[in-house]
Amino acid sequence: MPNPQEGARRVQRAKAAGRGAHVPREIPVGFYAALTIVAVLGIAAIGYSRYEVNHPVSATSSQSPPRVGQTWYTALGIEVCGHFEPVLAKGSGAASGMTALGNGVVKVAPKTPAETGAAATLVHFLDAAGVRVSTSSVVLPGHASIDVASVCGQRPVEVRTATWASLLATRPTIHAGTTGVRMLSGEVVAVAVVTKGATIAQPPTAANLANV
Rank of each mutant, 00 (worst) to 15 (best):
T178Y: 05
L184H: 08
G30M: 03
C152R: 07
Y51V: 12
V189W: 01
L101R: 15
A206L: 09
P28S: 05
P86I: 05
A21D: 10
S58P: 02
E6P: 00
I27F: 15
I27G: 01
I46G: 11
R182S: 09
T36I: 09
A210I: 10
G130V: 11
V131M: 06
L41E: 05
A120H: 01
Q5T: 14
E115L: 06
D127L: 12
S61A: 15
A75D: 10
V139Y: 08
H175W: 14
P172H: 06
S136M: 04
E187Q: 15
E85G: 00
S58H: 06
V191F: 07
A190R: 02
A8P: 00
N103V: 05
A176F: 07
A118E: 12
S134T: 15
G130Y: 11
G180V: 04
R160C: 04
A198C: 05
G180C: 03
K15A: 13
S185E: 11
A176P: 00
Y48G: 07
G97W: 03
R182I: 00
P141T: 06
A192Q: 08
A176G: 09
P113F: 08
V29H: 08
P4T: 07
V40C: 12
V151M: 13
P28Y: 00
G77V: 04
K107I: 04
V23T: 12
P56M: 09
A100R: 02
M98Y: 02
V131W: 09
A94E: 13
A17Q: 13
F31A: 12
R67I: 01
Y73Q: 09
H83F: 09
T199V: 14
T161C: 12
G7I: 12
I200P: 01
T173W: 05
P110G: 03
A114I: 00
R155Q: 14
A192F: 07
N211G: 03
S61P: 06
G47A: 15
G93V: 02
S150Y: 02
V193E: 03
V38M: 14
K111A: 05
T60M: 10
G91Y: 06
M183N: 02
I146D: 01
V123G: 04
G93K: 04
G180Y: 04
P113R: 06
V57N: 05
Y32C: 02
S145P: 02
G47V: 13
L184M: 12
A120R: 05
G42C: 10
H175I: 04
A100Q: 05
D147M: 03
S96F: 07
N3S: 14
T71R: 10
N3H: 09
T205G: 02
K90G: 10
S136G: 08
A192K: 03
V138L: 01
Y73T: 10
A44Y: 03
K196S: 14
K107G: 01
A207R: 13
T99C: 07
A33K: 12
S145Y: 00
A118C: 00
G18N: 13
G130D: 04
V80G: 03
A149F: 02
A44G: 09
V139E: 13
A75I: 01
I78M: 03
M183F: 08
R50P: 00
A34D: 07
C81A: 12
T199C: 00
G42T: 02
E79Q: 14
